[in-house]
């Protein structure tokens, strides 16, 4: 059995710290806890950038200041301390980000496909999809693209056989037992069940994403005529 946490050199100026090898809330919480611990330690000045993921944290550092041999013990100590402590898996002090979604119709052309596959009505699919709080495991793939956890298996649905060449920004989709939102227009093979008028990625904003890694989000059904109103108000 692999022992965690595991400290692995990635390249000559980045190190990967793994807390496990699966998609798990507690493992993911430790990733963010380690990032915070390093940010508030005296390692912070040598860090160039963090990339948190489902189960590991990449720390890119300035190799002209320190080699991994010089940083290893301190990283190891922080990682072990995080691994052995109980880390809250719910951001108790953070609000749940509400994402308004117009389900079905032009915004969610595949809602009926998902409902048929699940043997449910479209209203039941909407109720199940919007009745859950989702955990933002990480952002990746594209600017602001969230990897969400927590979708009810009853509405799981295979990807489209042929991906769309263009999925509009804000589209909410399902692929197998995952749900997600496309922050920007892109090609994509997810079953689209709705659309959010909310701007999920804004390069001029700080932070640039509406959903934050490690936080919780919830989808709130809105009438289709509210979509344009919200979209215009920015």
């Amino acid at each position: 059995m692999t022992q965690y946490p595991r400290i692995i050199p990635a390249n000559d100026s980045a190190v990967l710290i793994e807390f496990g090898n699966s998609i798990d809330y507690e493992i993911n919480a430790k990733v963010y806890a380690l990032q915070s611990a390093i940010e508030s330690s005296d390692l912070a000045p040598t860090v160039i950038e963090f990339i948190p993921s489902y189960r590991s944290l990449l720390v890119e550092y300035d190799v002209t200041q320190h080699t991994l041999a010089e940083l290893h013990d301190q990283i190891n100590e922080l990682a072990n301390s995080v691994a052995s402590e109980h880390v809250a898996t719910v951001d108790t002090d953070g609000d749940i980000q509400q994402i308004p979604v117009a389900y079905g119709g032009e915004y969610g052309p595949d809602l009926e496909t998902v409902a048929d596959h699940a043997g449910l009505s479209t209203d039941e699919v909407i109720a199940i999809h919007s009745g859950t709080d989702y955990h933002v495991f990480m952002l990746g793939f594209a600017p602001g693209f969230p990897y969400l956890g927590g979708m009810d298996e009853r509405i799981a649905c295979p990807r489209l056989a042929t991906p769309r060449t263009l999925v509009p920004a804000g589209s909410v989709g399902i692929a197998e037992s995952q749900t997600g939102v496309y922050p920007n227009p892109s090609p994509g093979g997810w079953q689209l069940i709705g659309g959010t008028p909310m701007k999920l990625f804004d390069a001029g904003a700080d932070p640039p994403t509406a959903m934050l890694p490690g936080n919780k989000v919830n989808f709130v059904p809105i009438p289709h005529d509210e979509y344009e109103t919200i979209a215009k108000s920015g």
Binding site: A10, N11, A14, L16, N21, S22, I23, I51, P52, S53, Y54, R55, S56, L57, L58, E60, M138, G140, Y147
Partner: peptide, 9 residues
Amino acid sequence: VSDPTYMGA
């Protein structure tokens, strides 16, 4: 399981 990437990987 999706993981961070880096230059030269």
